[in-house]
Design a binder for these strands. Structure first.
Length: 338
DNA sequence: GGCTACGTTCGA
DNA sequence: TCGAACGTAGCC
């Protein structure tokens, strides 16, 4: 599970207590570092080109290296290629914050189990599925809005809502947490307690959300990715099975294969259901195949996704996630989502 | 029906 | 134990 923690660790240098020992050299300077990250988000085409160029360089490099006397082992290739592109991402093993380039530059997203047409959740108006921000009507505003001082969240809002049962606007509103929200409500609906206020550090809301998810859930042995996966699976399975099950944290104690109790009791049929990518882990967020790994090179016969895009959750055994019962802290963490 | 990719099997 | 190959589910 250490790899999960490292792969989804999006903690900011000040968002946690450095309990895990490593030190961050990154000291965000508002007004200096932030625009750098903004660039990476508002210019997805540039990011894509950069990544493609990087992959190509890797491929060329390793191709030449293989011909040389000391070829690189596959693990070394993987370790090198898997290194995040962005400086800040090297600290977190993820992009500075999750910009859905796939959405921004038009690639159709992989079907992830974030939700479906309906997820049986009540008490929240949701006119569209979460991935509704993939629709064209969101793309222009997401990708073309100037990054004004007050609307820097706008291009991010849709992505921050990936996997969340809220609309992009709703998500953004929650993340902004206007001052009119009472402090108590802010913890519950706007942001998390124990988190640095958004205004103090110019960080994308997604980073902060995941920071809390990590720090809160991780302490109980449940990583953010695990929990998000479970939530997503609950939603997805409700959609597929047609049975009614709530998305409440209590439901997360259920089958990690994404089966509600009714479905899991059906026997092998539900167990055979293919799992879907969580859509939130670093590999799921990777947009392009490396073209170098064995899966890419052997795509015709291997039928496998690029090793660097293989969902962290799917790498685990199907039953591994349910061995860790979500703690109350994890439940509190995800109260925000529902 | 084609494509992608998850799950399983099997060999090294 | 790991990775390649295969079957096939899921999606379009």
């Amino acid at each position: 599970m250490a790899n999960m923690s490292s792969s989804v660790c999006m903690e900011t240098p000040h968002a946690h207590g450095h309990a895990h020992g490593h030190t961050h050299n990154y000291n965000p300077t508002p007004g200096r570092d932030f625009p750098l990250q903004i660039d990476s988000c508002v210019n997805p085409v540039l990011d894509y080109s950069a990544q493609m160029e990087r992959y190509r360089s890797f491929a060329t490099f390793y191709k030449n290296s293989t011909a040389a006397a000391a070829p690189f082992p596959q693990t070394a290739k993987i370790a090198r290629i898997a290194t995040p592109l962005f400086p800040s991402a090297r600290l977190s093993a993820m992009p500075p914050w999750p910009c859905d380039n796939a959405m921004l530059w038009g690639r159709k997203p992989a079907a992830v189990n974030v939700n479906g047409p309906h997820t049986h959740r009540t008490g929240m108006s949701r006119a569209e599925p979460v991935n509704m921000h993939m629709s064209g009507k969101h793309i222009p505003q997401d990708s073309a809005l100037p990054m004004g001082a007050d609307n820097f969240l706008s291009p991010l809002a849709a992505e921050q809502c990936r996997g969340l049962p809220v609309t992009g606007a709703d998500c953004m509103n929650r993340l902004k947490c206007p001052p009119s929200v009472p402090p108590g409500e802010a913890d519950r609906g706007g942001t998390f307690g124990g988190m640095p206020p958004l205004g103090g550090l110019s960080l994308p809301p997604g980073v902060i959300v995941m920071t809390t998810l990590h720090s809160g859930a991780g302490s109980s042995g449940v990583t953010m990715s695990d929990s998000a996966f479970q939530i997503a699976n609950v939603a997805a399975d409700c959609q597929h099975s047609g049975s009614s099950c709530s998305g409440s944290p209590a439901a997360l104690n259920g089958n990690a294969n994404g089966s509600c109790s009714s479905a899991s009791s059906n026997g092998s049929g539900a167990a055979k259901r293919k799992r879907k990518r969580c859509g939130v882990c670093a590999p799921c967020r990777r947009l392009i195949n490396c073209g170098v790994c064995s899966s890419c090179r052997n795509r015709k016969t291997g039928h496998q996704i690029c090793k660097f895009r293989k969902c962290e959750e799917l790498k685990k055994k199907p039953g591994s996630t349910m061995e860790r019962a979500p703690s109350a802290g994890a439940a509190d963490t995800f109260r925000w989502f529902f």
